[in-house]
Amino acid sequence: MSAAVRFVAPPPGLAPHTTFTLDPVSESGGLFALRAVQDPDVRLFVLDPGAVVPDYAPVLSDSQATGLGLRSSDDAQLFVVAHMTDEGVGVNLLAPVVLNRHTGDAAQVILEGQDLPVRALLA
């Protein structure tokens, strides 16, 4: 399954790209690659947090939800940015990528007032 994703602003470090494809990475069970449409070498790996952090339940601000046209939590699909470290796979729980399932609009948001790590190692 490949999906079209349009970021409302370029993801940090990936400017000027805003249009991406979201593709599962083989049969990894929740790992996806976001690839820039105009330059497929520009990519970001994201994880479905439900597959790796089952109790992850961030709360978006009203302005973040409105900016993506989210009317309910069911409209949103969350991903956490993944990166390799010397200790293993790390994820950013404070700045998830939020995707509107219906429109394909997305943003990487910084969660407000939530005590979540920017660098969490997966067990």
Rank of each mutant, 00 (worst) to 15 (best):
L99G: 03
T85L: 14
Q114H: 06
D75H: 10
H17F: 15
D23V: 08
A95S: 14
N100G: 05
L31D: 03
M84H: 12
Q77K: 13
F20E: 03
D48G: 12
T21P: 00
S63T: 11
D105H: 14
G88T: 12
S61V: 05
D55V: 05
A3R: 14
N100I: 05
A57N: 06
P16G: 09
M1V: 15
G104N: 10
G50F: 07
G90A: 13
P11D: 10
V98Q: 03
F45T: 13
M84S: 13
D41Y: 02
H102N: 13
A51R: 15
L22H: 02
G113N: 15
N100P: 02
L47G: 06
V5D: 01
E87V: 13
D74Y: 07
S73L: 11
S63E: 14
A106Q: 09
L121N: 11
L31Y: 11
Q114L: 01
P40H: 08
D41E: 13
V25H: 07
L111K: 09
P40Y: 04
D75E: 05
V98S: 09
P12C: 04
A51Y: 00
Q38P: 04
G29M: 10
Q108A: 08
P16S: 08
S28W: 06
P117A: 11
R43Y: 01
V52R: 14
G69V: 06
V8I: 13
V98L: 04
A57P: 01
Q64S: 04
V118L: 13
P96Y: 03
A120I: 04
Q77D: 07
R43T: 00
Q108Y: 08
P10I: 08
R119P: 01
E112F: 07
V46C: 05
T85F: 08
H83P: 00
S72I: 07
T85E: 15
A33H: 02
G29W: 10
H17P: 05
V42A: 14
D86V: 11
E112I: 11
L22Y: 00
V81I: 15
S28A: 14
A82S: 12
S63G: 00
G50I: 08
G50P: 04
Q64R: 05
L116N: 07
P96E: 04
A9S: 13
D23C: 05
A4C: 02
L122R: 06
V97E: 00
L111I: 06
A36Q: 02
L93T: 09
V81C: 07
A95R: 09
A106I: 03
P10C: 09
P40M: 05
P10W: 08
